[in-house]
Design a protein around this nucleic acid. Structure first.
Lengths: 106, 106
DNA sequence: GCGATACTTAAGCGCATGCTTCACCAACCT
DNA sequence: AGGTTGGTGAAGCATGCGCTTAAGTATCGC
């Protein structure tokens, strides 16, 4: 999932899909690479649950699926909150030590 | 940044750092791999701005830096919101079409 | 000073990734 | 029917990534 978002091209595809559904070729157009490569990226995104696709006739239409995005967002915010809460408890003290060390070292 | 969070071991390290600062060895302890490998992971996390480290004597102490996490969270939530807003506008209509197709195909 | 500890650095290795090409099928158009 | 368009699948290749070993440096404790 983070793996899927790790690639810039894949993020660009997600970006594009934010603005509405698109066919594979439409998705490929701005991406200076083969259709083959795009399909492979698409498979990764689909595997991560980030997009759903549907083939009508010979054209595959792709849409964002926000559930996976929501999960990622939650993972991050949980950890951030956890750390920030801990920081409130102990952090001020540690930051002070930090300052002392820097000032002592200078 | 997403690249940095893409690796499970790195995520585990982040998880560990949520619970408070740690030395490199502490970080390595649960991770069944060489100290070398851990340091390399750490370099990636530090490069992504996810952790800050500070060497005192011979021990390097690592802390989470939530700014990068915040940025990632924002990236995701912006895109999710964008898509969900668009979905509100056009989605109901498209979902209907979707249903029609499925029912028509069945 | 000397050994143990806590990293650090460099080199190397195997596997995963991202991409291409080529051959192919299926649907559309006329 | 036959060409064009949109997508699929399998190799193959080059690069990057995660990890290891091995050797080195700097600090700590005695």
């Amino acid at each position: 999932m983070f793996q899927a978002l790790a690639d810039p091209n894949r993020r660009q595809m997600v970006q594009r899909l934010c603005e509405g559904p698109a066919s594979v070729s439409e998705l490929a157009q701005p991406l200076q690479m083969t259709l083959s490569a795009v399909v492979q990226h698409l498979a990764v995104l689909e595997g991560a649950g980030l997009v759903r696709t549907q083939k009508i006739g010979r054209v595959r239409t792709c849409q964002l699926d926000t559930q996976a995005l929501r999960a990622a967002e939650r993972w991050i915010s949980e950890r951030r909150a956890l750390w920030e809460r801990r920081f409130d408890r102990l952090g001020a003290f540690l930051a002070e030590q930090d300052q002392d060390l820097k000032e002592g070292g200078a």
